[in-house]
Amino acid sequence: MSWTGRSIGLLGAAAMVMSVAACTADSGGGGASCANVYTYQDSSYRDVANVEFTLGKKLGVATQPPCDDTGGRDESEEAVTTQTAYEVDGISPEVAIAIGDTPKTATFFAVGSGSELPPEVQKMIDGS
């Protein structure tokens, strides 16, 4: 393979890596642009790992907008994703909810911005 062929192959590989990275973190390094974020009743919730919780009653529908990490996406290209929102026992839905297709697949989501979690959620994580 010629030098030109190898260079084009390396540039193509680099472009693929950069496009994958673009979908995982924003240019400021502070957060994910394609993060697992849902909206329920005008509040945004992001997934939180390692939280043990008890599922409460069904609340309604949570929506997840399509990822637009590259800009220029036509709004008609993708529809939003919807899943069922559930209460989390012992915590207000204004603070946290569970989201999933079924109660068995529901995962924990909390309001918050950046790396800060609501104190009620932090207590659940810490086991207090």
Score class of each variant (00 low, 15 high):
residue 77 E to F: 08
residue 89 D to E: 14
residue 40 Y to Q: 04
residue 23 C to R: 07
residue 87 E to H: 00
residue 35 A to R: 01
residue 67 C to H: 03
residue 127 G to C: 06
residue 96 A to C: 05
residue 75 E to L: 04
residue 42 D to S: 15
residue 62 A to N: 08
residue 45 Y to F: 15
residue 9 G to K: 02
residue 10 L to P: 05
residue 24 T to E: 15
residue 126 D to H: 13
residue 21 A to S: 13
residue 32 A to K: 02
residue 84 T to A: 11
residue 58 K to R: 14
residue 37 V to M: 10
residue 2 S to H: 05
residue 76 S to D: 11
residue 1 M to V: 07
residue 47 D to N: 10
residue 107 T to P: 00
residue 99 I to T: 02
residue 19 S to I: 12
residue 99 I to N: 11
residue 22 A to G: 07
residue 118 P to L: 08
residue 75 E to R: 02
residue 21 A to R: 09
residue 123 K to A: 15
residue 7 S to Y: 04
residue 20 V to A: 14
residue 12 G to F: 09
residue 93 P to S: 15
residue 63 T to W: 03
residue 9 G to C: 08
residue 18 M to R: 00
residue 20 V to H: 10
residue 21 A to C: 09
residue 22 A to L: 12
residue 78 E to R: 00
residue 31 G to N: 10
residue 61 V to R: 15
residue 51 V to N: 01
residue 125 I to C: 12
residue 26 D to S: 13
residue 33 S to H: 03
residue 31 G to E: 11
residue 27 S to D: 09
residue 10 L to C: 10
residue 63 T to K: 05
residue 79 A to Y: 02
residue 61 V to T: 15
residue 30 G to H: 02
residue 65 P to Q: 04
residue 81 T to Q: 13
residue 9 G to V: 03
residue 112 G to Q: 07
residue 15 A to K: 03
residue 118 P to C: 01
residue 6 R to W: 10
residue 13 A to M: 10
residue 56 G to F: 12
residue 122 Q to C: 00
residue 67 C to N: 05
residue 80 V to R: 12
residue 122 Q to L: 14
residue 57 K to Y: 08
residue 106 A to C: 05
residue 47 D to A: 06
residue 87 E to N: 06
residue 85 A to R: 14
residue 16 M to T: 05
residue 98 A to F: 04
residue 104 K to L: 10
residue 10 L to Q: 11
residue 105 T to E: 13
residue 6 R to N: 12
residue 91 I to M: 06
residue 119 P to S: 09
residue 106 A to D: 00
residue 126 D to C: 10
residue 12 G to R: 15
residue 100 G to L: 00
residue 58 K to W: 12
residue 60 G to C: 12
residue 22 A to D: 07
residue 96 A to P: 06
residue 115 S to C: 01
residue 117 L to D: 03
residue 57 K to P: 02
residue 71 G to T: 13
residue 116 E to R: 07
residue 97 I to K: 10
residue 108 F to K: 01
residue 46 R to Y: 07
residue 123 K to P: 00
residue 113 S to N: 09
residue 31 G to Y: 10
residue 116 E to V: 08
residue 70 T to V: 12
residue 22 A to N: 13
residue 68 D to M: 08
residue 4 T to E: 11
residue 58 K to C: 04
residue 126 D to I: 06
residue 88 V to H: 00
residue 93 P to F: 13
residue 110 A to G: 01
residue 73 R to H: 07
residue 96 A to N: 09
residue 2 S to Q: 04
residue 99 I to P: 13
residue 89 D to N: 14
residue 54 T to N: 15
residue 116 E to K: 07
residue 94 E to R: 14
residue 16 M to V: 14
residue 116 E to F: 09
residue 9 G to M: 02
residue 41 Q to N: 14
residue 15 A to N: 04
residue 35 A to F: 02
residue 70 T to M: 11
residue 8 I to E: 03
residue 17 V to Y: 05
residue 71 G to E: 14
residue 85 A to Y: 05
residue 72 G to T: 08
residue 61 V to L: 13
residue 125 I to V: 14
residue 110 A to I: 01
residue 69 D to R: 04
residue 26 D to L: 09
residue 36 N to D: 15
residue 87 E to S: 04
residue 24 T to F: 10
residue 31 G to F: 03
residue 43 S to K: 15
residue 80 V to L: 02
residue 99 I to G: 11
residue 100 G to Q: 04
residue 55 L to W: 11
residue 13 A to C: 14
residue 89 D to G: 01
residue 96 A to M: 11
residue 87 E to L: 09
residue 37 V to D: 12
residue 13 A to Y: 09
residue 117 L to P: 14
residue 122 Q to H: 03
